[in-house]
């Protein structure tokens, strides 16, 4: 498979702040690559360098074998871009935005289909749209010229689950058509849903690049359980269970392995309440990537 994105030792420093400090990775054609890291890790800065919004302090970025800066215009014919917090012209309607992009990029073949699929009303001014509809318009603008490469910077931040799922569905459809996707996120389950591989970035450095299956094994659950009868903290000192804290009538702990055994252990007790959540990315980093930093 040919390489679509190649980033080699990318550095971007803002004064003494090292926003990105030696990031290297590749994204292959047709691949969906997740760029995973907590807020402030350097994801947006890397994407802005890719898009030539900002200029790297050092390193090299090529896409489709072309230089991201020198061949920026050629490349942008092939790239669709969507940021997490879409900012467009408040006084323009959706149709005016679409026309503007068509005037620059050429007539779109799929814009009507996208409008229909996203159930978007293009006659409303951008300033009057809800945040979800603003994001829909951003997505339409990014996809309306059928890009070969779609770059998205935290595209589902602040969106309701329904719209999040629509975006995941669209990304998965694009993947089947051979579109290469780079999506940044601080949400591990999201990356698992839509990506084949993920690069893990923290404090401007690439910690690891993992296949999504391997990443899935590193999923960390946080379980908060309240008991209606007798229980003992020692009952839960089993493989994978960590950080057990006692709270009123219950326990809170993290599970870094298969949760099946733990759930079975919990089921042996009388339960009044239980909450199983995915641990946040910081916890995942602490658990799995601390040594690499």
């Amino acid at each position: 498979m040919s390489v679509v994105i190649r980033i080699d030792n990318l550095k971007k420093h803002f004064g003494s702040t090292k926003a990105v400090d030696g990031v290297t990775f590749e994204v292959k054609k047709g691949e969906s690559f997740g760029f995973l890291g907590p807020n402030g890790a350097g994801k947006t800065t890397t994407i802005r360098c890719l898009m030539d919004f900002i200029r790297p302090s050092a390193g090299k970025i090529t896409m489709f074998g072309l230089d991201a800066r020198k061949d920026s215009v050629k490349l942008k014919h092939k790239i669709g871009y969507l940021s997490g917090n879409v900012k467009l012209y408040h006084k323009w309607t959706g149709s005016e935005h679409i026309k503007f992009v068509q005037d620059i990029r050429g007539k779109s073949k799929n814009v009507d289909e996208l409008i229909q699929k996203l159930n978007f009303d293009p006659s409303i001014k951008f300033g009057s749209l809800s945040s979800g509809n603003k994001q829909k318009l951003g997505l339409i603008l990014a996809l309306m010229n059928s890009p070969e490469l779609l770059i998205m910077d935290e595209p589902t931040v602040g969106l309701d689950p329904l719209l999040q799922n629509t975006i995941y569905q669209i990304i998965n459809e694009l993947k089947t058509k051979g579109t290469t996707v780079l999506v940044s996120s601080h949400n591990l389950p999201e990356v698992e849903k839509i990506c084949d591989r993920a690069g893990i970035i923290k404090q401007g450095k690439m910690v690891a690049v993992e296949n999504i299956n391997e990443l899935g094994q590193k999923r960390l659950h946080k379980i908060e359980v309240r008991f209606g009868g007798r229980y003992s903290k020692d009952d839960f000192k089993i493989s994978g269970v960590e950080n057990i804290q006692e709270v009123k009538d219950g326990l809170i702990f993290t599970v870094g392995a298969d949760i099946d055994e733990v759930i079975k252990q919990i089921a042996k007790h009388k339960i009044t309440d239980i909450e199983v959540t995915h641990a946040n990315l910081e916890d995942v980093f602490l658990r799995f990537y601390e040594k690499e930093l």
């Binding site: 919004f53 215009v73 917090n85 900012k87 012209y89 620059i104 990029r105 603008l141």
Partner: peptide
């Protein structure tokens, strides 16, 4: 200031 520069910069125009 409004962030709309990203729309312009993401288009194929130098």
């Amino acid at each position: 200031e409004q962030g709309t520069i990203e729309l312009l910069l993401s288009q194929p125009i130098s």
